[in-house]
């Protein structure tokens, strides 16, 4: 999801170097998604592969958190979202790297290395935009305020997750919150930005209830395999 959103910057980055950086991160995320969907397809054992899960599911069948499907916005929004998500992903991967499922633990160990860089890159940008000009400070603060209500969903747990936690396959997402909050608070204050206050937390993505943006995004993301089923390129 987020890999696709980042790939929308390809050819539109603020400078060539950042264009390449964003595309690199996009590729990392798409690679992680490919591995996870491949593992999920094996577990499902219903004849679907990773491509089928990515390209042939409709909006309501998607289970992603809402924060990753929001439009890319301006560069400040992209940086703020990447930062908030990457710090979450870092702690999630770290915990999953000790999963009882060897495949999942392997995917997590690989993703963890990539995610450390995503955090470093987005955190450094957040500091520069926050501690930059009035314009960049204002834009990135607006982005943080706008995104904040989508962060709560990342730490919700449900029955499916709890069942996996019992088998030591997954981690309780709510247990990651304190570490995330600590890291995020630290960088936001370094960036001379203000922590958004308590707001109503949006939810729904995890149960298939999405924003209106996801359908539009999937239309673009899925058009090729749906128009030419089984196409190879």
């Amino acid at each position: 999801m987020l890999g696709h959103r980042l790939s929308e910057w390809c050819g539109h980055g603020p400078i060539l170097e950042e264009d390449i950086a964003l595309t690199n991160i996009a590729l990392d995320l798409v690679g992680e998604a490919n591995l996870l969907l491949g593992r999920a397809a094996t577990a499902e054992n219903a004849g679907r592969d990773a491509d089928a899960l990515a390209f042939l599911r409709d909006v309501r069948e998607y289970r992603n958190a809402l924060i990753v499907e929001l439009p890319k916005g301006d560069f400040g929004f992209t940086v703020a979202r990447q930062f908030l998500f990457s710090v979450y992903a870092l702690h999630q991967w770290e915990a999953l790297s000790t999963s009882a499922d060897d495949d999942l633990a392997g995917i997590a160990a690989k993703a963890l290395k990539e995610t450390r860089y995503h955090v470093r890159h987005s955190a450094e940008w957040l500091v520069r935009l926050g501690d930059g000009t009035d314009e960049s400070h204002g834009r990135v603060q607006d982005a943080l305020d706008e995104l904040w209500r989508f962060t709560g969903e990342l730490f919700l747990t449900d029955d499916v997750e709890q069942a996996l936690v019992k088998q030591k396959l997954a981690v309780d997402s709510s247990s990651l919150f304190d570490a995330w909050k600590r890291d995020v608070t630290d960088v936001i204050s370094r960036a001379t930005l203000r922590m958004p206050g308590d707001v109503y937390m949006q939810r729904g993505g995890r149960s298939g209830m999405h924003t209106e943006h996801l359908g539009v995004m999937l239309a673009e993301m899925q058009v090729l395999p749906r128009t030419y089923p089984g196409a190879k390129w």
């Binding site: 950042e18 390449i20 450094e124 940008w125 520069r128």
Partner: peptide
Amino acid sequence: PDAEMALQNARDV
């Protein structure tokens, strides 16, 4: 804009 970002950009490019 600065040394840290130069290092990151160099890594990416």
